[in-house]
């Protein structure tokens, strides 16, 4: 299969995901004493229409490490603003000689229709509530780097599943590597029709924790709380925040992932985080996720762009 774009892991085969893992490993192993050239002479545009620090930096670094040039392109775009159209943006990219557009947008599906018709790779850095494919891939890579056997592992994901693009990418990534997924959230964040086939779902974190091999904490976004989804963030934290009492329900070697940025006091209590950092720092993978993001994104760029 010839891959050009990365919008969704639904369209990425298991083989392609495995290929990303292999290439990420390759880049990580050789990063210290080797330079790479697979994007040499290639321009890669980065347009983030939503705030981001780590994902944007991570992509930019990945392009540079592969010898490519980053074009920082930030047009006013989107339907509500009187900015340029999707088509104009794409034309500009092509005129600038860009081989790819790495983008982030609060509106999902912006480039879905145009993508098959143009010679430009579209790589999502997170689209609305749709998908965030490289985040899911870097999570898998991080777990593999830790020597975790994903086959048969139980991943408990807790948080605002409804608005999470990370969760939607993991609906494909985790099962592809044989892990089973348990979703935990209050009903407002976890409608039945959202639960993918094969995953289990529940409203009680206490019930799910003892069986978790990996606990994936999702961000509960403050900016979404203005619309009466929950009585308050504190109400959420009291039922779903990882505090020390709930921490004690986890297996002693259960690992913790978070896509960042973390709201300490909401999805995890300050005390629980400090306790873990002091006594079991090896169980907390947050920093490794960030570091591995660069290699995973190099792998994705290499897979989609090298040789094209």
């Amino acid at each position: 299969m010839f891959l050009k774009d990365l919008f969704s892991l639904a369209h990425f085969s298991v083989a392609a995901m495995q290929e990303v893992m292999e290439r990420a490993r390759y880049f990580k192993d050789r990063d210290r004493n080797q330079t790479f050239k697979s994007l040499q002479g290639k321009n890669v545009a980065i347009s983030f229409w939503e705030p981001s620090t780590r994902t944007r930096l991570s992509f930019a670094l990945a392009v540079q490490k592969l010898g490519g040039t980053v074009i920082d392109y930030q047009p006013e775009m989107g339907s509500e603003k009187k900015g340029e159209s999707i088509e104009d943006t794409v034309k500009t990219m092509l005129s600038l000689g860009a081989a790819a557009l790495i983008f982030r947008s609060s509106i999902p599906g912006l480039f879905y229709e145009i993508a098959p018709h143009v010679e430009l790779s579209f790589i999502s850095g997170g689209e609305g509530c749709y998908q965030h494919p490289t985040q899911a891939l870097l999570d898998i890579f991080t777990l593999q780097q830790r020597g975790v056997t994903l086959q048969g592992a139980n991943v408990v994901m807790v948080g605002d599943i409804l608005h999470s693009r990370v969760a939607r990418s993991h609906f494909y990534a985790l099962p592809a590597f044989g892990a089973s997924l348990t979703l935990v959230a209050p009903p407002v964040f976890l409608p039945d029709a959202l639960v993918p086939p094969g995953a289990s779902a529940g409203f009680s974190l206490e019930e799910a924790l003892p069986a978790a091999d990996i606990l994936y904490l999702l961000r509960v976004q403050k900016e979404r709380q203005g619309v009466n989804l929950l009585p308050s963030l504190n109400a959420y934290a009291s039922l779903y925040g990882l505090d020390q009492k709930r921490l004690a329900l986890l297996k002693k070697d259960a690992l913790l992932l978070h896509p960042g940025p973390m709201n300490v006091g909401t999805e995890i209590s300050y005390e629980a985080l400090k306790y873990l950092e002091r006594h079991n720092p090896e169980r907390v993978l947050f920093q490794e996720q960030v570091a591995n993001g660069v290699y995973t994104r190099m792998a994705v760029l290499d897979l989609l762009l090298a040789g094209r």
């Binding site: 999902p108 599906g109 609305g128 509530c129 749709y130 998908q131 939607r168 029709a193 959202l194």
Partner: peptide, 13 residues
């Protein structure tokens, strides 16, 4: 619609 497709696409239902 608040169904599997809409939720999968992450669209407001």
């Amino acid at each position: 619609h608040a169904g599997a497709t809409g939720y999968r696409l992450g669209l407001p239902v």
